[in-house]
């Protein structure tokens, strides 16, 4: 059984919101475990892990160094080297924050790596604001590998012209100009043609739209989405009310 893309988005989004609102250490760990499990089940663990690591490793390291070593508010000192003081409060702050952020990030990444982007685009109404956001998302995802391979071609073409990139910041910056100028002007020019093409194919028209791709949706899922949305709102409201009261 395959979920409607908006349902998986609602699940991921509300999980991230509720975990942040709850700020509970066991819940964060449970969400992390569930996210990794789900991703393994769906077979997307292989691409997901490096992407998650690229985001989370520097973030968590930075938190640990920052709060583990320097937390002026901390009282119970575990160790001290010069200005650096390891405190219980600092460590627990860092670990809790790291777990909570990891949970939210993983929940959202499981969605991005499992969703079928064309289905997601087709599920959003083509007209108006959502259609335009969907266009930007889909077009960016298509252009990214295209831009990367064009950059590769530009590098080859310039190497073939005898340009050798040398070490050093100034040389790197000069090399940036050599490669960015052809890349950006080609992309901008192509975008100009694409703009005319899309206009001619009715991209800017304001009338009703239809969709060629069928994305099945069930009433039960629609109900589930409403429920998840409400749950997220309630979680946020409860936390704010608690803080205010």
């Amino acid at each position: 059984m395959r979920l409607h893309p908006l349902t998986s988005l609602a699940v991921a989004g509300s999980t991230a919101v509720i975990t942040t609102a709850a700020a509970s250490w066991p819940l964060s760990l449970a969400v992390i475990a569930a996210a990794v499990g789900l991703s393994a089940l769906g077979g997307t663990l292989r691409p997901l892990l490096p992407a998650a690591a690229a985001v989370l490793v520097p973030l968590c390291l930075s938190l640990l160094v920052l709060h583990g070593l320097f937390f002026p508010e901390g009282v119970s000192v575990l160790a001290q080297w010069g200005p650096a003081r390891v405190t219980t409060e600092g460590l627990s702050f860092a670990l809790q924050r790291a777990a909570q952020l990891s949970a939210a990030v993983l929940a959202l990444l499981v969605f991005s790596f499992s969703v079928n982007v064309p289905d997601l685009v087709a599920a959003l109404p083509a007209k108006g604001i959502q259609g335009r956001v969907a266009f930007v998302l889909a077009s960016t995802l298509t252009l990214m590998p295209a831009a990367a391979s064009r950059l590769q071609r530009i590098r080859q073409a310039q190497e073939a012209r005898g340009l050798v990139i040398r070490r050093g910041l100034l040389h790197r910056m000069a090399a940036f100009r050599l490669q960015a100028v052809p890349l950006v002007s080609a992309l901008v020019e192509e975008a100009g043609t694409r703009g005319s093409a899309l206009d001619a194919r009715g991209f800017g028209s304001t009338g009703p739209r239809t969709s060629y791709r069928e994305v099945p949706d069930r009433p039960l899922e629609r109900l589930l989405r409403t429920f998840l949305l409400l749950a997220a709102v309630v979680a946020v409201a409860a936390r704010l009310w608690q803080a205010g009261g």
């Binding site: 108006g128 604001i129 992309l187 975008a191 703009g195 899309l198």
Partner: peptide, 19 residues
């Protein structure tokens, strides 16, 4: 803002995002 942008700007946004 998004609905007011002409197509020539709309197609440039993905390019900007890629950069």
């Amino acid at each position: 803002v998004l609905p007011t942008l002409p197509t020539s700007t709309m197609v440039l946004i993905p390019v900007a995002l890629v950069l």
